[in-house]
């Protein structure tokens, strides 16, 4: 039997708005995934460390403060340095449309903006998770 998809839901930066992160975490868990939630105020280093320690297939980042252009690319860069670029990285929060191409260029596979149903995130992960297919 296939093992469940493992997801790290993480909040980089300083904002404390974790309603979305927690709703997503729970929806992914209800969809049969194994979910770890980091809690607030995680540095890129802490997130990458947790992703590797927990051997996750997906990192789901949530940010609402506007610091995404600084912090998201830092996380993908660190993952690459640790040889973990096959982890699927997605992001969500209050992220302006015009920032999305920049984030995608920097290795964020998809950005989910306010109003996205949790089902869309679940389907996206199932269709795009790379690690599981490789193992």
């Amino acid at each position: 039997m296939e093992r469940p998809i493992r997801v790290l839901v993480a909040k980089p930066g300083l904002d404390g708005h974790d309603r979305g992160a927690k709703v997503i975490a729970r929806a992914l868990r209800d969809a049969g995934m194994e979910v770890i939630y980091t809690g607030l105020r995680q540095t890129p280093e802490q997130i990458v460390e947790a992703a590797i320690q927990e051997d996750v297939d997906v990192v789901a980042l949530s940010i609402l403060s506007g610091a995404h252009n600084t912090l998201f690319p830092k996380i993908t860069k660190l993952l690459k340095e640790r040889g973990a670029e096959d982890i699927l990285v997605i992001g969500g929060g209050v992220i302006p449309e015009e920032d999305i191409p920049f984030l995608k260029e920097h290795g964020i596979a998809e950005i989910f903006t306010p109003g996205t149903p949790t089902s869309a995130v679940i389907e996206y992960i199932k269709a795009n998770v790379k690690r599981l297919a490789k193992k």
Binding site: G13, L14, D15, R41, T43, S65, G66, A67, N69, T70, L71
Partner: peptide, 22 residues
């Protein structure tokens, strides 16, 4: 902004990307 609310000066490493944002 969030660094001010959490007691970090703007030159603190934790403040990176957050200065003046919210």
């Amino acid at each position: 902004d969030l660094p001010t609310q959490i007691g970090y000066d703007s030159d603190h490493p934790m403040a990176e990307g957050e200065v003046g944002k919210v």
